[in-house]
Design a binder for these strands. Sequence first.
DNA 1: TCACAATGTAAGTAATCACTCACTTTTTAG
DNA 2: CTAAAAAGTGAGTGATTACTTACATTGTGA
Lengths: 224, 224
Amino acid sequence: MDDRSLSERPNSTGLQEPSDLQLTDKQWNILDAALAVFTEKGFSAATTSEIARQAGVSEGTIFRHFKTKKDILLAMLVPLIRNTMGPKSVNSLTQMIVKNENLPLREVLLMIALERQDFLLENQALLRLILTEAQYHPELREAIIGEVAYKSQEQLIRLIEQRQQKGEIRQDLPAWVLVRSFFGMVVVYMLSGVMLTKREAGKDNREEILKIIDLFLNGAVAEK
Amino acid sequence: MDDRSLSERPNSTGLQEPSDLQLTDKQWNILDAALAVFTEKGFSAATTSEIARQAGVSEGTIFRHFKTKKDILLAMLVPLIRNTMGPKSVNSLTQMIVKNENLPLREVLLMIALERQDFLLENQALLRLILTEAQYHPELREAIIGEVAYKSQEQLIRLIEQRQQKGEIRQDLPAWVLVRSFFGMVVVYMLSGVMLTKREAGKDNREEILKIIDLFLNGAVAEK
DNA sequence: TCACAATGTAAGTAATCACTCACTTTTTAG
DNA sequence: CTAAAAAGTGAGTGATTACTTACATTGTGA
């Protein structure tokens, strides 16, 4: 089985919400298949019969466990965001920030950017599905913003304020401006890399990311 | 009429406004209605019967002019990108760049950012539709990248290289790194403004954009 | 005026959809 | 071991889908 993100069994991820307590193997098969079909076709174009086929169960079985097609989507994505993407995303940020308080900011930002890049490449299809369907399902929008975007931003703000207090970073700009700007530089760089060019996964672009960090730290104007 | 889609009409090769294309009023009604329905529900969830209802024509009329539902989408979006969004986007950039060669870069960047913001807010729903459906329709992806993204980037690169030659901007970074970084800072700032907060359209955020430009130009490190 | 093509339409059509139901098999509790 | 409960099944179901067709209306050129 392609071990991407759903294949963690419930007892390996700890306590969960009541709605996703104790899922049987068959239920996980269904959600795994749903992830594959939804990411390939999108929610509306995906059919429950194809999910059943890929899960190796009958269509009736699906509706024994999930009331509606939309329920399948949410039962899969909301716990995935809340219990896997969210914590993974936030914890790795927190760790990098507290463990490297004395490292030059440049080094910390590089670690963060590279880690975000891995995360993005590994979860490309899943993230695309979430962002697409977030337009039509407010529950998803709230989950991804609250559990990933907002909490990640909070951690980065902590990092920036920490460095502002050290006098390392200018204090005349609010931390959130610095955070969102840095995030924007890095993410748009990575997305345009994926969209405009054929980048092989894991291509070494350390040097280019360092240039962006240099730009973020020192600015675009020429030295006087 | 056997034409598969408007973009293939032999006399539409030159640059033309969408109103110049040989479309009857009824065809425009259909495309107008299609735009409304597609942006609200997405391509897959939209139905031809609702498009017909909103256009005030029978369903048969739709299929007299467009062979398939997908043809409606492409006949509407591809010319819109090629003849309206693309030129509008690129020309305003070009004008701002050549007309203000002697203005401080800071001022030019502010103009560009504000203009991009207007464009984004005005075309929010349309852009969301295009980006969503670009996942499933390569023709759309190619159109939006080739006609808008790539050409806009080219103009901004001209601006940056112009300033690099003047010695105003550091020359140790490739222009495209500067361009994409600036674009990323601004766009992510605007998107997070739309997503995370309730911003009224046209809210005055000139000061905040100026802070981002300041950051882009002077960097995040504290003065020595 | 008339012939004829282009345009418009309502009533289809076959396919497919999400979902149900009557029934069988498997799991669980005492 | 047994009986009830839970899980699984595949053949339905009515609704809805994109698209067609047979026919009516309109526009046009001579």
